[in-house]
């Protein structure tokens, strides 16, 4: 296990072979009409193909904004995001986003919610139903295709959210605190599921969370953000523990201790 303190990837180190590169991103926006907020400052991240990167930070550290910038939903004030070397100018089906608040369409069934991606691309009904059914099965919701979101529990809703993002076969999966609203048991179970799905459907994943255990359990690499606005990068940790990981493993606990100690300084 190697721990690399404040290992910020700078532009000069070369970015060939990286899937996603964020170059010196900062972001300001205006809220409530007149309040200018400085959310991110000088963020540079490079993510390798099929890597599982976790962005870890407390509430109000700008991590959701960073993910939305990578998704193309927000435009950075300065800096840019490169996907396969091309600059990101807007959202697109090459990236899939899983929302913190599930954001399912309440007027559509599970099937309707999952098949929306191919439907928007004009895939014929029979074909898109087949694809959607495959991903519904992958997330373990077969048999619930005709349920409406309000008939599902939180964990099941987020499975639909994950299936919906996967169904477009995006090269990059972006998950924004997807299990933040779940109870501890379901959360742990969903983390295991996430690893299982990631191992079947190998993708580049950027996972945002405020939970240190979740970060270590899931990530190949953990990027921590500073705990107050504007969000700055604090440190990068390589996690080379073999999967499946155990929360009680000595090395797991050791890393947990290191990250906790380091993050407390920034709060």
């Amino acid at each position: 296990m190697s721990v690399k303190e404040s290992g910020v990837v700078s532009q000069e180190k070369g970015q060939d072979g990286y899937k996603i590169v964020c170059e010196r991103i900062s972001k300001e926006f205006i809220q409530k009409g007149t309040q200018r907020v400085h959310v991110l400052e000088d963020i540079s991240v490079a993510v390798r193909k099929n890597e599982f990167v976790v962005i870890l930070g407390p509430g109000q550290s700008g991590k959701t904004t960073l993910l939305r910038i990578i998704a193309g939903l927000e435009i950075p004030t300065t800096g840019r995001v490169l996907l396969d070397g091309r600059e990101v100018t807007g959202p697109g089906p090459d990236r899939g986003l899983v929302f913190q608040g599930y954001m399912l369409f309440p007027w559509k069934t599970v099937m309707g919610n999952v098949e929306i991606g191919p439907k928007l691309r004009g895939v014929p009904k029979k074909e898109r139903r087949e694809i959607a059914a495959r991903y519904i099965k992958l997330v373990g919701l077969d048999g619930f295709e005709n349920h409406y979101p309000h008939q599902l529990s939180g964990g099941m809703k987020q499975r639909v959210g994950i299936a919906r993002a996967y169904v477009n076969s995006p090269e990059v999966m972006l998950l924004d605190e997807p299990f933040g609203q779940l109870d501890a048991q379901t959360r742990y179970y969903m983390e295991k599921e996430t690893v299982r799905i990631w191992e079947t459907e190998r993708r580049t994943v950027i996972f945002v969370t405020n939970n240190i255990d979740e970060a270590i359990y899931l990530g190949d690499r953990i990027i921590t953000l500073q705990g107050k606005l504007p969000g700055r990068m604090h440190a990068v940790y390589e996690v080379d523990l073999p999967r499946p990981r155990e929360h009680t493993d000595m090395k797991f606990l050791e890393l947990r201790h290191i990250i906790t100690e380091a993050s407390e300084l920034t709060l």
Partner: peptide, 9 residues
């Protein structure tokens, strides 16, 4: 400072 009052027209 992260917050700043500005005028938006």
């Amino acid at each position: 400072m992260a917050y700043e009052e500005v005028k938006v027209k």
